[in-house]
Amino acid sequence: HHHHHGSGALAALHAEGPLAGLPVTRSDARVLIFNEWEERKKSDPWLRLDMSDKAIFRRYPHLR
């Protein structure tokens, strides 16, 4: 159930192989992290948004 927010940013994801479903670039990863943060913020208003490279690598090590 993907609803768009204002920016309408869509992340490019790997379609197949071992990385299927994972973001292709760091900016794609940022979109995913932001979208998930927006969702989680509803139940956790104090949740901090962390889109640093460090956060991205921790989450998606293949982007190193």
Results as ranks from 00 to 15, higher is better:
His1Pro: 10
His1Ile: 13
His1Cys: 15
His2Lys: 10
His2Trp: 12
His2Gln: 10
His2Thr: 11
His3Arg: 09
His3Ile: 12
His3Trp: 11
His4Gly: 10
His4Glu: 09
His4Gln: 09
His5Glu: 11
His5Cys: 15
His5Gln: 14
His5Asn: 12
His5Ile: 15
Gly6Gln: 12
Gly6Arg: 14
Gly6Ile: 15
Ser7Ala: 12
Ser7Thr: 14
Ser7Ile: 14
Gly8Arg: 10
Gly8Cys: 12
Gly8Thr: 12
Gly8Gln: 10
Gly8Glu: 10
Gly8Val: 08
Ala9Cys: 13
Ala9Glu: 12
Ala9Val: 12
Ala9Phe: 14
Leu10Glu: 14
Leu10Lys: 14
Leu10Pro: 14
Ala11Gln: 04
Ala11Val: 11
Ala12Leu: 15
Ala12Pro: 03
Ala12Ser: 13
Ala12Gln: 14
Leu13Lys: 05
Leu13Asn: 03
Leu13Gly: 02
His14Glu: 03
His14Thr: 03
His14Gln: 03
His14Arg: 02
His14Phe: 09
Ala15Thr: 14
Ala15Gln: 14
Ala15Met: 14
Ala15Pro: 11
Ala15Phe: 08
Glu16Cys: 15
Glu16Asp: 14
Glu16Trp: 10
Glu16Phe: 12
Glu16Leu: 07
Gly17Gln: 02
Gly17Lys: 07
Gly17Ala: 03
Gly17Asn: 05
Gly17Phe: 03
Gly17Cys: 04
Gly17Met: 02
Pro18Met: 06
Pro18Lys: 06
Leu19Asp: 04
Leu19Gly: 02
Leu19Ile: 03
Leu19Trp: 10
Leu19Cys: 07
Leu19Arg: 03
Ala20Gly: 05
Ala20His: 09
Ala20Leu: 11
Ala20Asp: 04
Ala20Arg: 12
Gly21His: 04
Gly21Trp: 03
Leu22Ile: 02
Pro23Trp: 00
Pro23Asn: 00
Val24Cys: 09
Val24Asp: 01
Val24Gly: 01
Val24Ser: 03
Thr25Val: 02
Thr25Arg: 06
Thr25Ser: 11
Thr25Met: 04
Thr25Gln: 05
Arg26Val: 15
Arg26Cys: 09
Arg26Ala: 13
Arg26Glu: 07
Arg26Gly: 05
Ser27Ile: 11
Ser27Leu: 15
Asp28Gln: 04
Asp28Ala: 05
Asp28His: 03
Asp28Pro: 01
Asp28Ile: 02
Asp28Phe: 04
Ala29Asn: 00
Ala29Val: 01
Arg30Gly: 04
Arg30Asn: 04
Arg30Ser: 04
Arg30His: 04
Val31Trp: 12
Val31Asp: 05
Leu32Glu: 03
Leu32Val: 08
Leu32Ile: 13
Leu32Tyr: 04
Leu32Ala: 04
Ile33Trp: 01
Ile33Thr: 02
Ile33Glu: 01
Phe34His: 06
Asn35Asp: 06
Asn35His: 12
Asn35Ala: 14
Asn35Cys: 11
Asn35Ile: 15
Asn35Pro: 00
Glu36Lys: 04
Glu36Met: 06
Glu36Trp: 06
Glu36Phe: 05
Trp37Gly: 01
Trp37Ile: 02
Trp37Gln: 02
Trp37Glu: 01
Trp37Asn: 01
Glu38Pro: 02
Glu38Ile: 15
Glu39Met: 12
Glu39Asp: 09
Glu39His: 10
Glu39Leu: 11
Glu39Asn: 09
Glu39Gly: 06
Arg40Lys: 13
Arg40Phe: 08
Arg40Glu: 08
Arg40Cys: 07
Lys41Asp: 05
Lys41Ser: 11
Lys41Gly: 05
Lys42Arg: 10
Lys42Phe: 07
Lys42Met: 08
Ser43Met: 14
Ser43Trp: 10
Ser43Glu: 10
Ser43Arg: 11
Asp44Gly: 05
Asp44Phe: 11
Asp44Gln: 09
Asp44Arg: 06
Asp44Cys: 07
Asp44Lys: 09
Pro45Asn: 07
Pro45Met: 07
Trp46Gln: 12
Trp46Cys: 11
Trp46Asn: 14
Trp46Leu: 13
Trp46Thr: 15
Arg48Thr: 11
Arg48Asp: 07
Arg48Met: 09
Arg48Gly: 07
Leu49Glu: 01
Leu49Asn: 02
Leu49Trp: 03
Asp50Trp: 04
Asp50Ile: 04
Asp50Ser: 04
Asp50Gln: 04
Met51His: 03
Met51Asn: 05
Ser52Tyr: 01
Ser52Thr: 08
Ser52Trp: 01
Ser52Gly: 05
Asp53Ser: 07
Asp53Phe: 09
Asp53Val: 09
Asp53Tyr: 08
Lys54Gly: 09
Lys54Trp: 10
Lys54Pro: 07
Lys54Asp: 15
Lys54Ser: 12
Lys54Ala: 13
Lys54Phe: 09
Ile56Ser: 00
Ile56Cys: 02
Ile56Gly: 00
Phe57Val: 08
Phe57Gly: 06
Phe57Ile: 09
Phe57Ala: 07
Phe57Asp: 09
Arg58Phe: 12
Arg58Lys: 14
Arg58Ala: 13
Arg59Pro: 00
Arg59Gln: 07
Tyr60Lys: 00
Tyr60Met: 00
Tyr60Ala: 01
Tyr60Asp: 00
Pro61Tyr: 02
Pro61Cys: 03
Pro61Ala: 04
Pro61Leu: 02
His62Thr: 01
His62Met: 01
His62Lys: 00
Leu63His: 00
Leu63Asp: 00
Leu63Lys: 00
Arg64Cys: 08
Arg64His: 07
Arg64Glu: 09
Arg64Thr: 08
Arg64Val: 08
